[in-house]
Amino acid sequence: MRLKLFLLSLAFCFMAAFSAHAADMTARQTAEAGADRIMALLNDPAFKNPATKAAIREKIEDEVLQLFDFDEFSTRTVGPTWRKFTPEQKSAFKTAFTDLLRNTYIDTLDEYNGEKIRFTGEVVANNGKRVEVQMEFLTSKQAYPVAFRMLEKKGRWVVYDVLIEGISMIKNYRDQFRDILAKGDPQTLIERVQAKAIEQKEKKLKEKKEAK
């Protein structure tokens, strides 16, 4: 009985692994599978355990990097000016911007408290090359509309923008960066993003200390 159960679950795991890497998954399936895996990790009791927490968090970060394309985030937030960046500036900006997003959002994972995601629909545009997958983030009190904009890259769908309550994260940053680039050069922008990333990190550390 036990062996049967074991084999069955093994087969199930293989199937899940296979389907996750199949290139013919639609955008919505990719988003759903990715969100499911991240939610499963967040619900894992090991995530609440301080000893095993770091490992789970790393796994979550891996999943996030699979689903969200930080190259796309970087090029799109800068916009057309991106072509004027030197290769060094491009990689420096990408690192700084990724750090900023990580430092800003990673700690919100700790605040996770059983919230759920419900997929509500999708909009296919640009001849099927771009898809907006719509969902709701359900807290105990309210439902927040969230949407992923996705494109296909190397045979798999990745997220290139996140809309929270209809506000595009990338367009919001792009508006800010356009202001900075209008007055300064790429180097100024990189430095300001780096400074903000560090500021966010220090603020979170301070908040943690105060909480203790």
């Binding site: 509500t120 629909g121 999708e122 545009a125 640009n126 907006e132 904009r149």
Partner: peptide, 24 residues
């Protein structure tokens, strides 16, 4: 849910006109 679902469904036919990728 029902409303959201129907909104998404009605958004579909107009999809050809929507440009989701106007970042550049």
């Amino acid at each position: 849910a029902a409303q959201a679902e129907s909104a998404a469904a009605t958004a579909q036919p107009a999809a050809a006109e929507i440009d989701l990728d106007d970042y550049d």
